[in-house]
Design a protein around this nucleic acid. Structure first.
Length: 504
RNA sequence: GCUCCGGUAGUAUAGCCCGGCCAAGUAUGGCGGCCUCUCGAGCCGCAGACGCGGGUUCAAAUCCCGCCCGGAGCACCA
């Protein structure tokens, strides 16, 4: 019992079993994004669940780009590349990849089959007229026409007899279906690709499949056994089931998880894209965003996201996760590896007098791993005095007469605070004395041995200050802990150190 | 409005299908203490939840009905 609890804690929660796995030879899952934005934490649920389930059953995980809308939800090659990198970073690389714009002719084949068998028809009604009829549960005039006529109209769609919006292929369903949304849904429409060329195939095709058709056909053709997607697709399943019935296919198992939100972040792809394009955000990795690129830049490890998603699981309830949920997982991962450094922000000068010798102290890079080595500070007083920098927040707490300890160094008594310059006098050296006096512990930097540093916070504001010279042993991408400040990822090292704040 | 899906502590999750061992477990966050030369980590403890109302039953978080609340879909988007 106890060991089980411990094991779960270390490895994370186990996913509930997938339904009816024994009915399929091999579990196949897929992640099917429209490449019209980079990926964000909201996509993580689909990705991690699909990937982990595939792995759990030694199955296959497919990446399928659904780029079938050259006009409204334009995809781009840039996003396809970014998405591949996102998946790689997340640790969920696909076993196979497909792009729907390569498969248009496959969809045409099935369209023609359905048309000739009377399961689909080409509708030339005006959208509002069709809508009125369908709401009333009545067929439109096109529906009862013979298959030959529909095949001819289909040719017309392909051959530019019809213009954009003048004809659409519909799949016959049940005109009395309680949910009007599933009645005779559209499967293909015409897009003027001369005006709106597709980023990959240009104006090669003018008849494009809609989501339910392309997705439905592909899920079957690719042998998807378990569809894991958001429950906004619940009615799409109802629609696609008609297609499967006509084709004699068996609909895969489908799991619909609830909507995921994270407090304070917009997961709307269109808002993210617009914000970046308009310059509201610095880029796809702007720290205010919840994109994988932003999380990566802030030092959030992909494993933390994975654990969070595994913990959340596939249940259908809508949830709003708190950033703390993510941070807690991340902290467990980075705390043992992050080296410690002193960062002094909003610096205030701090002079100590009455020093009768030089001091050399070695502070461990990690308090729990002394074997990792330390950082060395030399304090060489001039005329018995030395000047340090401490954080403004700490300086504010000081009052004359107080004894404070400069961590790992010595204890001083505050004498005066003039114009933001703290004057103190040496009190004693041993740590035990600080404890006895219950002195506050503050961190510090020798004034003449420090490097300018800027920490970009999650709200994109910057905290400025100085960091100790030994930060130079850190490399870009390292996650460090600025003591009494928080964890941050080193973003660049130059005249100034730039870091991105992760969390406390 | 119509159709569908949900509702367990601040957040997340277990339990619900197969009623009792659930006066509801876990994680995180909060609070307190211990430890520690970080406001980190670790350890110990405390507080904190079954949306509401009926019903069935010896027994309901679990089954039934009604209500309330939240979300999604209702595109020639995905």
């Amino acid at each position: 019992m106890e060991t089980k609890a411990r094991g779960e804690k270390a490895r994370g929660r186990e996913l509930p079993p997938l339904p009816n796995v024994e009915r399929y030879g091999r579990v196949v899952t897929r992640f099917a994004p429209n490449p019209d934005c980079v990926l964000h934490i909201g996509s993580a649920r689909a990705i991690v669940l699909c990937y982990e389930y595939a792995r759990m059953y030694k199955g296959k995980f497919i990446l399928r780009f659904e780029d079938t809308d050259p006009r409204l939800k334009r995809s781009s090659i840039e996003f396809m590349d970014l998405i591949r990198k996102d998946l790689e970073w997340l640790g969920c690389p696909p076993d196979e990849e497909y792009i729907q714009s390569d498969r248009i002719e496959i969809y045409y084949e099935y369209a023609e089959k359905l048309l000739s068998e009377g399961y689909a028809y080409v509708c030339t009604c005006k959208p509002d007229q069709f809508h009125a009829r369908v709401m009333a549960g009545e067929p439109c005039p096109c529906r009862a026409l013979p298959p030959e006529e529909h095949l001819r109209r289909w040719e017309g769609m392909l051959e530019k007899v019809y213009g954009e919006g003048e004809a659409v292929v519909r799949i016959k369903t049940d005109l009395k279906h309680p949910n009007p949304a599933v009645r005779d849904w559209p499967a293909f429409r015409i897009i003027d690709t001369e005006r709106y060329p597709h980023p990959r195939v240009g104006s090669k095709y003018r008849v494009w499949p809609l989501y339910n058709f392309a997705c439905g056909v592909d899920d079957h053709l690719m042998g998807i056994t378990h569809i894991i997607r958001g429950k906004e697709h619940l009615t799409n399943q109802e629609r696609q089931i008609y297609l499967y019935r006509y084709m004699g296919w068996e609909y895969p198992e489908a799991i619909h998880y609830g909507r995921l939100k994270i407090v304070g972040a917009s997961l709307s792809k269109s808002k993210i894209v617009r914000g970046v394009l308009e310059g509201l955000y610095a880029g796809w990795d702007d720290p205010r965003l919840a994109t994988f690129l932003a999380l990566k830049r802030r030092g959030i490890r992909p494993e933390a996201i994975k654990r969070l998603i595994l913990e959340i699981g596939p249940r259908p309830a809508d949830i709003t996760i708190s950033w703390e949920n993510l941070y807690a997982h991340n902290r467990k991962i980075i705390d043992p590896i992050a080296n410690r450094f002193f960062l002094v922000w909003d610096p205030v000068r701090f002079t100590v007098e009455g020093l009768s010798k030089e001091f050399t102290v070695r502070v461990p890079l990690h308090p729990d791993h002394p074997e990792r080595g330390g950082r060395t500070f030399h304090i060489k007083p001039i005329n018995g005095a030395a000047t340090f920098l401490i954080s403004g927040r700490d300086a504010e707490q000081l009052t004359p007469g107080m004894v404070v300890r400069l961590m790992e160094l010595f204890n001083v008594e505050v004498k005066a605070i003039n114009k933001g310059h703290v004057h103190t006098v040496f009190h004693s050296e041993p740590y035990s004395e600080a404890r006895r006096l219950n002195a506050t512990l503050i961190h510090w930097l020798p004034e003449d041995r420090c490097i300018p540093c800027r920490v970009i916070m999650p709200n994109n504001t910057a905290v400025s200050g100085f960091v100790e010279e030994s930060i130079r042993i850190a490399k870009v991408d390292d996650v460090v802990q600025f003591e009494r400040f928080g964890f941050a990822r080193i973003d660049s090292i130059g005249e100034e150190i730039i870091a991105y704040y992760a969390h406390k």
